[in-house]
C-alpha cells in the first residue's frame, strides 16, 4: 500500500437526501449595563419559571435517579483518557 492511512472508512448509503441545514437563529440579547443592573420583570419572570420547573423536577426526580445511588456511583469507574 503506497499510503498507510490511520482511518478506515466504513460504507454508508450513498442515496441519502441532503437536507438543508437549518440553524435556529435567535438574536443575541443586546443588553446594556443599565438594563441588567436592575432586576427587570423579564429576569424575575424567568427566575420564577426556572424555580417552578425545578420544583416539578424535584417531584419527579426519583423516577429518573438510578435505583441504588451508592452502587451506581461506586460502579461508575472509567479508565483515564486524554
Amino acid at each position: 500500500m503506497p499510503v498507510a492511512g490511520e482511518i478506515r472508512q466504513w460504507r454508508a448509503r450513498g442515496d441519502e437526501a441532503m437536507p438543508e441545514r437549518e440553524l435556529k437563529r435567535k438574536s443575541a440579547p443586546a443588553r446594556t449595563e443599565s438594563e441588567v443592573v436592575e432586576d427587570t420583570p423579564a429576569t424575575s419572570e424567568r427566575g420564577e419559571k426556572i424555580k417552578a420547573e425545578l420544583d416539578d423536577l424535584m417531584d419527579e426526580i426519583d423516577e429518573v435517579l438510578e435505583d441504588n445511588a451508592e452502587e451506581f456511583v461506586r460502579n461508575y469507574v472509567q479508565k483515564g483518557g486524554q
Binding site: G5, E6, Q9, G14
Partner: peptide, 15 residues
C-alpha cells in the same frame, strides 16, 4: 464517502 463508499479506501483529515 456517501457517494462512493466502495472506492474510498482511506479517509484522513487531510487526504
Amino acid at each position: 464517502l456517501a457517494r462512493w463508499p466502495e472506492a474510498v479506501v482511506t479517509a484522513n483529515w487531510d487526504s
